[in-house]
Design a protein around this nucleic acid. Sequence first.
DNA 1: AATGATTAAAGGTCAAAGATAGTCAAACCG
DNA 2: CGGTTTGACTATCTTTGACCTTTAATCATT
Lengths: 155, 155
Amino acid sequence: MNKTISDIIEEFIISSLDDDSFIELSRNDLAKFFACVPSQINYVLNTRFTINRGFMVESQRGGGGYIKVTRLMDTNENFLKSALNNCTEPVNLARGNQIVNTMQEKALLTKNEAEILKSAISNKALNNPINMENVMRSNILKQVILQLMKNNFHN
Amino acid sequence: MNKTISDIIEEFIISSLDDDSFIELSRNDLAKFFACVPSQINYVLNTRFTINRGFMVESQRGGGGYIKVTRLMDTNENFLKSALNNCTEPVNLARGNQIVNTMQEKALLTKNEAEILKSAISNKALNNPINMENVMRSNILKQVILQLMKNNFHN
DNA sequence: AATGATTAAAGGTCAAAGATAGTCAAACCG
DNA sequence: CGGTTTGACTATCTTTGACCTTTAATCATT
């Protein structure tokens, strides 16, 4: 709704990170640009650009000082890359579920999302013998919907 | 029937929910508008906008604080049943996406979950001409992983 | 030219003030 | 009595400013 100055600064920094994996900022210049006190920048960095949210902040004081914000490519990305590699060849049910479970462990999927996905790749969803996308798709959706019903209503 | 101020606030919020599935309110502004104490708003939310009645309330304190009221369509179960019925016959891409989008609008799927699902039923995921579960599964997973990468890493 | 001292230019910390929202129990009213 | 209204007190998030620390640049001395 009503964005705070902190929200706006956050957006600015994130949008500046679009292409590069890091940027260097000047705390004072940023504060001037947004007409706020310099410590406001620290507030934004401390509350928004945490490790938990996938960022790293380094800085240097003194003349020529700077603040460097890095978007972390943590092991999650490596895992996804390797999993994607796995998918260049057929994936059986056990292996598929294992991949989904690991994604959930790594918080790349919520429990709900993992359940949705596992129902999408279940044998039930995929056991269509004929080459028909629409049929396969309807099977997948059917399974997902059944799963959602189970999640949302207890019967 | 003499309406109480609580009833009137309830009606106001519900009418604000016309098309959108949620709105964000300012507790203080609303209280001022209805010339009541702010905690009156909490009373209305606690007694009228319950899960049981098909609503969800989220909020944030402090500067830029807000109250977000989401309507959880109680016709959700009916919609799922009808969608499931749809899936007894082939579902083309447009129709499939439409179903997923509606599930998202009805808060049955988060944005993330909807994206996952749409990538799972995309033409890319399903265009395998041979009757092989494992191949289809790996295709689906591949698309989902690509989507997750897009969600989690900006490149 | 080398070195040590001083100054200027960053960024950091923390607590108070400001801005919202939440809780709970007493008072009120039908 | 049961639902509603009110307000004092509390909790949480944001903004601000005074004071602190670190580092580069400069200056003075030998």
